[in-house]
Amino acid sequence: MSVSTPTAWAPEVFAPWPHTPGALLARVAARSTAFDATGAGGGASVLIGSAAGTTAADVGRRARGELMERMGNVFAGRAAEAEAEAAAGAGGARPPAAGVGGVRTCDWFALRRDGVPAADPADPATGPVDGANRGVPARGVRQLWCRGRAAGSCEDIWVPAGAAFLQHRPPPGCAATHRAGSTGVAAHRDPDAAAAHAAWEILERDLVRRSWYDPLRHPPVPFDARGALPPGASELRALLHREGLEATALALPAPTGAEAVAVCVHGPDRTRQTFGARCGPAHDLQETVERACWEALMVRWSMSAPVAVRAWDRLSRTGDPRTGLDHALWTFHAQDALTHWAGPATALRAPPAPASRPARDPGPVALLAAHTGREVIVVDRCAGPPADEGLTVVRLIAPGASPLPARPVPGQLPHPFG
């Protein structure tokens, strides 16, 4: 059932579950030759924003915001790449100097010689490496750099463009040491609000990753999510009941002041699992569980989308998840990730007691820096339609925190997140 018609980046808001018309999804997508193919788009050059919940205005705003943050970051990368190419085309044997324009093509040693502070591309903590250059001595790679700033000290620090921009395309004569995903990108009219949103997202993925890949060291605490929802979450409770679904939440070890929850939605026999996650302030457990639950339901609904059906046809033969969609499909069709991660249903416990509101709230960016013990880097660059709207799009880079990988991790089951 369609509730709105898409125009000018307006999302389509629809009610996919006829028995629960108050449960809504929103989706909006853009196509451009500036975008690379993605799994969720079935290999098309599209970026997609989506959200789930019960209020049309809220899910629409969040879906549109997700598209804008991704689009703004990709176009910022394209602008930086074009700036570097223009400088090279103008006889730029001398690349743009640090401090002018905010981009530069060189290797890490050249920045060091010029006294320009830069993230070390050889440091594994700097971010996900570009698979095409795995094993190459990273400091000597000629690549595009862009200027960021340390969130705490506000001092300039230059970062590889591949760590800053989603789907970075190296300029001629350059390679890339890093290849960033969407984790850590956020859009808002207020730059501080954008940075806060990005910091919670990075922290969430890092806490999920740590617990999934080493549950003995970072043990999850499983509990029934339905008993920990806000009193007003009647549509969500009704949807789970009418679909015959259970929802198991996992409280993940988190730094003081934060709360991280993964939710698995599944059948009574623990088949057909999909996962969502959420990280937020430690005193908001009910809302954290609710948001993670909606995310898991959105992914579950997507398991029957045409691109997912085609992807499963391939994946069921290869058994080799390679994209976010693949990971969700593998979990839904072929893996009891919940029991692997948190033990059998008999391991369920009571929901954690709500934490008290801290006397002093350092905010998520400082909390993330304390979690990693490293300065968080902010790259504040936006281009394309989001810039035309006056949005700020930031990329946060948190050395020491890592997103969930799509490629296999040797000796480990594929993680269950799409």
Binding site: R27, A29, G42, G181, A305, G324, P385, L404
Partner: peptide, 25 residues
């Protein structure tokens, strides 16, 4: 920079899956 053509997807939207774009995706 000349901005690449960009369009909103409408007809194919129901084809797509709906959390993350991983670094390798």
């Amino acid at each position: 920079m000349e901005q690449p053509e960009i369009e909103q997807v409408t007809e194919e939207l129901p084809e797509f899956g709906l959390i993350d774009i991983p670094s390798e995706d």
